[in-house]
Design a protein around this nucleic acid. Structure first.
Lengths: 117, 117
DNA sequence: TATGTAGATTGATGGCCGTCGATCTGGTGC
DNA sequence: GCACCAGATCGACGGCCATCAATCTACATA
């Protein structure tokens, strides 16, 4: 119970010895780290990564009906992945009649890319 | 072009109308996509992202005891995150006496970074 | 109107993830 | 030997994720 108020110098590191250089606080702020992590997390699935790859290599907007046969998952699963990418702000969609077109937002990957460099 | 050469009767697309450009297969192979996704997934957590940020900004190797107070999680949780990063091939560790030092592997983020550019 | 179609949504399921306290490991110093 | 320490590992818990078949929603065409 009664603890010695004084934080005794239980520092045992031998004279002059330090484990390493002084503390360095993260350069990226918490908000920024969160934003970047959200994008990275969305890219953290092989199918979503390849989805973004296809959309990026394609100048225009790609119809979902062209995307589905490229992958070995059901249509509903692919739709889910596209929704996740939309939620992360990486892609956007546009409806034309029966078809839906997806495209990568220009600046979506900029912050992550910049942080990596 | 040669659009009209009709294949199946079920095709309902109005004359000459197509949903979009022809199919484009993913540029990144499945193996490569998987490797990149593994790295992205590991970075998909704010704490791990900031961990990598600190280690990267630091030239040498950083002691775990300096990392723990930077984050609002328990020591065991931080140790877990470091293990995940190690599993993804992003960081490596080295023991010196009681202390453990972590550092970013030089080429760890190269493939992801290259893909983003 | 009725039928067919593209794509989104729902609900269920099994597995994985982030977090913690507690414990274990092995190196240090008395 | 013994006590202490840094860091890894364990076991458990709650929540989130990837997947599917089934269903729903618009739109298009007859």
């Amino acid at each position: 119970m009664a603890v010695d108020l004084v934080l005794a110098p239980k520092q045992k590191r031998a004279a002059g010895e330090r484990c390493c250089e002084p503390v360095v606080y993260p350069d990226v702020e918490r908000d920024q780290a969160l934003r970047i992590a959200v994008v990275a997390k969305a890219l953290g699935d092989p199918i979503r990564l390849q989805l973004v790859d296809v959309l990026r290599k394609h100048a225009g907007k790609v119809c979902v009906c062209e995307l589905v046969p490229l992958f070995d998952v059901s249509q509903s699963t692919l739709s889910h992945h596209l929704k996740v990418l939309r939620g992360a702000g990486i892609v956007e969609s546009e409806r034309r009649g029966l078809w839906a077109y997806y495209y990568v937002l220009p600046d979506a990957l900029k912050e992550l890319s910049a942080w990596l460099s």
